[in-house]
Design a protein around this nucleic acid. Sequence first.
RNA 1: GCCCUGGUGGUGGAAUGGUAUACACGCAACACUUAAAAUGUUGUGAGGCUUGUCCUCAUGCGGGUUCGACUCCCGCCCUGGGCACCA
Length: 820
Amino acid sequence: MAKYNPRKIEAKWQEKWYGSSVFKAKNGSKKKKYYLMVEFPYPSGDGLHVGHCRSFTAFDIIARKRRMQGYNVLYPMGWDAFGLPTENYAIKKGVHPSVVTKKNTDNFRRQMKSLGLSFDWSREINTTDPKYYKWTQWIFVKLFENGLAYKAKISINWCPSCKIGLANEEVVAGNCERCGTKVEKREKDQWMIKITNYAERLIRDLDSVDYLEKIKTQQKDWIGESHGALVKFPVEGVEEFIEVFTTRIDTIFSGTFLILSPGHSFIGKYKNKIENIDEVFKYREDSKNVSDMDRTNQDKEITGVQLKGITVRNPATNEEMPVWVADFVLEQYGTGAVFADAHDKRDFKMGRKYGIPLRTSVRPDDEVLAQKTKNLEESFEGEGTLYNSAQFDGLKSAEARPKIITWLAFKGLAQPKISYKLRDWVFSRQHYWGEPIPMIYCKKCASMGGSAEAGWMPVDEKDLPVKLPNVKKYKPTDTGESPLALIKKWVEVKCPKCGGLAQRETDTMPNWAGSNWYYLRYVDPKNSKKLVDEALSKYWMPVDWYNGGMEHTTLHLLYSRFIFKFLWDIGAVSTSIGSEPYKKRTSHGMVLGEGGIKMSKSKGNVINPDTVVKQFGADTLRLYEMFMGPFEQMIPWDTKGVVGCRRFIEKVYNLVTKKDLSSKTEESLKKLLHKTIKKVGEDIELMKFNTAVSSMMEFVNVWQVSEIGLEKKDIADFLTILSPFAPHLAEELWRNAGFKEMCCEQKWPKYDEKLIEEKNILLIVQINGKVRDKIIANVGLSQKEIEKIVFKSEKIKNLMGDKKPVKIIFVPNKLINIVI
RNA sequence: GCCCUGGUGGUGGAAUGGUAUACACGCAACACUUAAAAUGUUGUGAGGCUUGUCCUCAUGCGGGUUCGACUCCCGCCCUGGGCACCA
């Protein structure tokens, strides 16, 4: 008998699979579709990570099972290939990024195929392919045409050493991710995308999708919806209001001063009225230089400056209030201004520090706390009962809020308002290796006036894609402009409107641009006329099950939901499919290095899947990655543990190869097989791959010691449920056992409901909740019958002595508990 | 500070109100072998003695609910992740 030789077996079956159409998703099929997707990787030079293997294998198992269940399955793969590491490599070695990308994707594809993953390779996509990014650019044009893309001067993160603008994600603890230099702020004109327009829908529509609860929570927290009110504070002596957003209008009667953010427009507008304007301006300048790190440090001393000569009136009490500036009030949130009282810790501290009067108007339920609050010993931030609040005295905070809003609204001084933490999305990067933003700026047209976007025109659809030109140097310039700005021939272009000399936008898009919509391209990967064919989007979308890392919850996942909603709004996809791209979203746990620390080259603890495949075989790697622990949990790699999975595979190989197939399976083994079929099937759906594997191990352990073994049909069933996990092995044994076709094309076996029903059960006998005996009894015996058996038992008699049972708890077919 | 995870043998873990420690690793003994590896068999939470189909104790810590709690509730500690002056 031949020894188990994974290298030979695996190469053979991979050739058969990839040379046939078994993994191909079929357009125009009458079958029900199932669209499974794992996040496409960034093809780095390091090759596939064992973490990739884990989630790809898990979803490969689901894909293979779905095919066996009769679905038309789409399980595609592609490359999110724009990005910094490739660009940096190009800068260092002088190789064009596209060459590096080609090399890396070839390696990744080889590695994936060596694992036997059942991707449909005929639908492979690559975000750096001009045929692909033509549509990424097209989406940008549509965003612009619909008023969702605009230019704004914002401060960006600037690394003075690398001379490059950094995305927020590239700044680690205030330093440049690459060189560690302290990051500075620079003002720059950037393209922005109005994702904030979609904030409400992005929260509300979470109710209609099946995401892990923690994913929903994180997205909601990130978008940060707060319900409150916009309140107007009339400024003394001028026809002007300062607007404030508050969620705690129930505390309005205790408001004794107003605080503006340093950048608030009121200051510039009324600089002539502010007596100490020099001091205020100085404070504003100083606060600009406070780094983000210092500004977010909560232990930081509160600072502020009063705007002398300016007062406002509290719209509730009509009292005069001083106005201050403080840098803990943020320009970007709400209206950039707050009213201050003793019911906020920061306001409280500030009032104390500068001797500004403080007042309270909410009483906590706790008496001691109420006294302390009233005596201004400490700041009470919770909810309670109102006092000092005129006609609202005695109301609870929650009931007072709508009443106060209505009362002030009647005077035209307040309105309900929902505020979001979500900011618009900075879409410009000063890098080479990204999609060029397909916009043209014409000075002449800009002089015709209008908005900030005047003079900006999108590239005509027929001229898309705007291809990345070849450059000699990929490194950004000293001015912080993209290296594309140096190529005069590419930058200078005819204005699409007036025909005069105009210039291209030289910034490129962020990494997320290509992954915003890739799920749509898999559906129709070669379409050169449209982003996606309507009928195909209608058949395949939405993605039925999408898996990815938790680290993408607030970036990629949110961005792509937003872009899909936009495409749906403009009718770029079939409108019958709903405005959510993913029906179900789950997430995998990271695979750590041995000892529980993160795998990294510097630590030298990186596990290369190639090595594992070479040493143990792909099936062993697949099985181990599923067996190592719960799928959603972080888990350390353990090379010793891999051995156990290899042993299991050899056991199965030897059993099927050696045993006589003509015999009839004995009843108890057949029963266990059907229980295993049930368990494996259910566990796959719940992503409990580890227990699915262990149940197959248990089955094989029993099978191994059984004298008769399995009959042919039962072998077939077992190989079929094993095949999603260890597909090469299953395929080989399937053929060896003399079956026709391929194992992966079989139907998923049904378990026999009657067969797994138990006739006898092990019944637990407890006294006072402690296990004292176990008896084998027929299924369905009544309490009386069980009691009869139990009270006859010598053991129980001895344990009970002369004590009488006080109470007897009986759980049918499970347990009897005698309380004495 | 707030939100979300998780805490079980020497190790990865199993069990979501009813036999705690499945499965696997590791370890030990035995068999096979000149020997080793591989393989197979058996044992393996801790402690105790009267060595048993025995007893006691153990699921981060402290309380509670229950006939019965790893599982539910309250308080606390620790791990990992996210957000962080958000009005």
